[in-house]
Structures are given as C-alpha cells and as structure tokens.
Amino acid sequence: MADLFTVNKSPFEKNSLENAIKFSTEGASILLIEDGVYGASKGTACESMITGAAGKKFYALKSDLKARGIADDRLIDGVEVVDYAGFVELVCSTDKTQAWL
C-alpha cells in the first residue's frame, strides 16, 4: 500500500501538485480538493503533470469540481471523481494521509 496525498492548490498558483507527484511513491493516491481540482481539467498547460505521472492514481472531489464548473467531460482521462464518503474511504484504505498545502 502507499500514501494518500491531498492537494488543495491550483497547479498554476503553487507547485503542490507537481511536488506531491514527485515525492509520492509508486502506487500513491493523489486527491485534488478545493482549488486543487483545477489541476484535473484537460487541455491546460498543467495537464501533463497528471498525464505524465505513471503509477499514481488521481482523484478529484466532486463538490469542489461542481462548485468550479468543471464538468465530467472536461476531466483528464483516468481521474476518478469521489464524494466525501469516497474521500474518507481513501484515507482509510491508504497507509496515511499527507496534506500538500
């Protein structure tokens, strides 16, 4: 098993997503929350951070996507949408949670 990393910053604002990817192990889960969900949209200059990250699983929080008008068809392929119950499930099913603020 591996860790869960939460990322709450837009990738355009801070390097939290970039470094969460860099410092996570193979098999890690990366959950985008709050402004972090902007990183889940395709066609952006930051898209390759996620599409180029092999061996990591990406998730985005549903209510934060909806609040920011990011529809499912705008999501990068492979990013899984979870609700808060799914967030809790991710926390419990991984070794520990690291917040990359």
């Binding site: 860790d3 860099k22 410092f23 996570s24 192990t25 690291q98 917040a99 990359w100 603020l101």
Partner: peptide
Amino acid sequence: DSAKVTELMAESDVVFSF
C-alpha cells in the same frame, strides 16, 4: 536527494503539515 525524501516520508507513520 528527492528519492531519499520520498523514502523518508513513506516510512513515517504521521506527517504533520502546516
């Protein structure tokens, strides 16, 4: 180096972030 950072964080039981 980065690989060591990854390893050290992975082997911790709790990571505090501020």
